[in-house]
């Protein structure tokens, strides 16, 4: 007899025993009617599925840390977008130039129409702060996107291929990581013949690359040995599909979280580079780091001209950090219910 037939016979015989699964059990109570139990597999609610992202978003919405961060970031973006409407003056207008005298009054005081006073060139400080948000946003976002693009490419290469590709990519990344990031940025910025806003962006983007690459490669490798990737392999799914449908999407969570944190780092580093004079030499477009740098000569007598741009930088990067940290918490599989 073949095993299949034997099994069939066995199962047929058993069918009888399942037909009356609870025979004789309800013996005691016959006043009450039995109630239908759930199907064997248990109930499945007839509703649209909720993806991981959706449930993470639900948790995020309730997190006060995230809300504070998001409000700060939203304010920052709104100010940047509507700068021309909000600012009372153009950033390169010099309405207070007449009040400046190099020896007695280098910085115009706060007065009607100029709530924060002016800067050393007679420009309205408030307007420059408002316009400065634009430059800061552009630099921060572009630098982070650049770093993200480079990091994701390298990380995917290393994580998807493994072996010697992984070794080569990671050694390059290690070298980049071993240099202090600000030093690397200074080197790159000073290599450019003419420092400009773009050198700052490129410099910071390159500094971000190894961070993203390492992070992504780490989670890709974890994915690679995970059961669901093994399951896809055993199904005969093509390698490229495994990388792009399973490994990459499941690895990007921490990378995106990192990118919000990286945004705040970019803003601070951009400010630092501008402060050191490696940014855009043309100060007609206001930029917070540059303003901070320009303020250093007069800092002891007029601390407020340094305080305001510094406060803006701190508050905005705090906003991004709060958002990033709470996103990381929400995406953490351990906190999932």
């Amino acid at each position: 007899m073949t095993p299949l037939n034997r099994k069939k016979e066995r199962l047929d015989g058993l069918a009888a025993s399942t037909a009356a699964p609870a025979a004789g059990q309800a013996g005691g109570v016959d006043v009450m009617d039995p109630v239908d139990p759930v199907g064997e597999a248990g109930a499945v609610r007839d509703a649209e599925g909720v993806s991981l992202l959706a449930s993470a978003w639900r948790r995020l919405r309730r997190n006060p840390m995230f809300i504070i961060g998001a409000v700060l970031v939203a304010l920052f973006i709104l100010v940047a977008v509507f700068a021309p409407l909000l600012a009372p003056h153009a950033p390169d207008d010099r309405p207070l130039i007449g009040q400046i005298s190099a020896s007695t009054n280098p910085i115009p005081k706060a007065q009607d129409g100029f709530p924060l006073g002016g800067d050393e060139k007679g420009r309205d400080l408030l307007s420059r702060l408002i316009y400065g948000s634009r430059q800061t946003l552009i630099v921060g976002v572009l630098a982070t996107l650049g770093g993200l693009a480079g990091g994701v490419t390298l990380g995917t290469l290393a994580g998807a291929f493994g072996g010697w590709v992984d070794s080569v990519v990671m050694r390059v990344v290690d070298v980049l990581l071993s240099l202090p990031s600000i030093l690397l940025a200074i080197t790159i910025a000073s290599l450019a013949s003419q420092p400009s806003q773009w050198t700052v962006i490129v410099a910071i983007a390159i500094v971000q690359v190894p961070v993203f690459a390492r992070l992504l490669r780490g989670s890709m490798l974890a994915q690679r040995s995970s059961d669901h990737v093994l399951a896809a392999r055993s199904l005969g799914v093509k390698r490229s599909a495994i990388v792009f449908r399973h490994m990459l999407p499941n690895s990007l969570g921490p990378v995106f979280v990192q990118s919000t944190l990286a945004l705040s780092v970019s803003i601070i580093e951009a400010a630092a580079l501008s402060f050191l004079g490696l940014g855009n030499p043309d100060d007609s477009k206001a930029e917070w780091g540059q303003m901070l740098g320009a303020a250093q000569n007069l800092f002891d007598l007029y601390p407020h001209i340094a305080f305001w741009p510094a406060a803006c930088i701190v508050v905005v990067s705090l906003g991004f950090t709060l958002m990033g940290e709470s996103m990381r918490e929400a995406l953490d599989p351990k906190s999932r219910r």
Binding site: T18, P21, V38, E40, G42, A43
Partner: peptide
């Protein structure tokens, strides 16, 4: 051997 098991239907989610 060969007796069919009588499972408890559903799960604690029910």
């Amino acid at each position: 051997r060969g007796e069919r098991l009588n499972p408890v239907p559903g799960s604690v989610a029910d």
